[in-house]
Design a protein around this nucleic acid. Sequence first.
DNA 1: CGGATCGTTGAGTTGTATCAAGACGGGTGG
DNA 2: CCACCCGTCTTGATACAACTCAACGATCCG
Lengths: 246, 246
Amino acid sequence: MVAPYASAHNLMIRKLESIVALSDEEKQALQSLPIQLAALKTDQDIVCVGDRPSQCFMLVEGFTCVYKLTSEGKRQIVAFHVPGDMPDLHSLHLEVMDISMATVTPCTLGFIPHEALRRLCEGYPRIAAALWRETLVDASIFREWMTGIGRRESYNRMAHLLCEFWMRLRAVGLTQGHSFTLPVTQVELADAIGASTVHVNRVFQELRTNGLIRTTGAQVNIPDWEKLKEAADFDPLYLHLRQDDE
Amino acid sequence: MVAPYASAHNLMIRKLESIVALSDEEKQALQSLPIQLAALKTDQDIVCVGDRPSQCFMLVEGFTCVYKLTSEGKRQIVAFHVPGDMPDLHSLHLEVMDISMATVTPCTLGFIPHEALRRLCEGYPRIAAALWRETLVDASIFREWMTGIGRRESYNRMAHLLCEFWMRLRAVGLTQGHSFTLPVTQVELADAIGASTVHVNRVFQELRTNGLIRTTGAQVNIPDWEKLKEAADFDPLYLHLRQDDE
DNA sequence: CGGATCGTTGAGTTGTATCAAGACGGGTGG
DNA sequence: CCACCCGTCTTGATACAACTCAACGATCCG
């Protein structure tokens, strides 16, 4: 369980330990990372295209998204992030941001200077590898979303996104059985699956009438996981979670 | 210029040097990497979903693509790679392949054991960082393609892809002025931009009649770069090339 | 000179966008 | 505590980008 008061350090250590077993020395190094907490409201930009950040952040609480705007003003959300994620870790090696990030809900972020992370990576190759891996999983999710947007219909894409949310939230202890809170508006969902708001609304209704999901407010319940999974053409492999059981 | 006989080692060193200045010791370490060359014909799979490779490859000559298949048998190409790229570098830290890779033209590949790369990364953090960066640029391109597929029309997407090809090929010396060879079929282009073959064909005609491109066989010429760039809504930032001049 | 692959065209269909307007709901200020 | 407002969700009607199916032309190659 990720309690709201979970320290950013512990969250990070827990995350990395799900990837590699950490020695005491490595844990110590992580514990002594300077992390500065910050609270943000909904719909606030964290970093923007063109920025040259000198720090990364770990998402401690809340949801964030990564998005791009086209010259016509259309928005594509290319990723959502959940507690435990480090959404802009890539800024460690890519000087200029090619994307923007914003909060989707009120959030708690833990900022870590690039300097500190670089020193950590140089001193502890296994930690470097684990962080590298994090960015690779992000990339893997991009690939999966891309094939969804390019080759699946929006009904299936929506189902897919719900499957992904459930699995990722479960991995950080934010599900209750087959239920979870999805504090994301239909506008945001539309921008994520590359559809219009109107259509997302209709797709949701279809998912409901087909008995694939039940919703009460922001709560989503999955009555029949296998059925949703099938509709979504969902294979969790791309999430590269360590415990691939269901 | 990347001559066909360019050694894989030199190609790799040149690539990394465009990112970080390498010391003699680092160059030496790279020179002593065991690289095994292999020649492949067109349309051959290199790695497949589910594989657990124990080596990476550097593309020395030719074009490759990364693709996924949906359960309905549709294919989405999520990336093309050109000489100098290391398409499956991510397999170094993600055990199981979530995508497949195949040749698009006859290719020369240089295979490098994971073992050797891991040792290299542990001993030379700056090389590790440069390789990490490579995978981050790949991810950045995924993001850009995703917003194209999700939020741009296919005409613009096609223009965008052509812009990208030109810039990436130019970066490795494979362009002649504003011309380059694009040895990719319309079927493959369609799978890349998430459209049907028929539609790609029509888009190509439109691009031609609008004077944005001229083609002779696999040769593509860009008469007016600015115009193509504008139609594509193309901003090269996402490629994270070091010399961002045009 | 077949045969295979790739490119091109035409016609009909459909998924999804757009536009417009109304319903709901939760927060704020008077 | 009510009235108002703004964001979100919902619904209907219309339009169009892009798909599918089907066939034909062009090349290249053995």
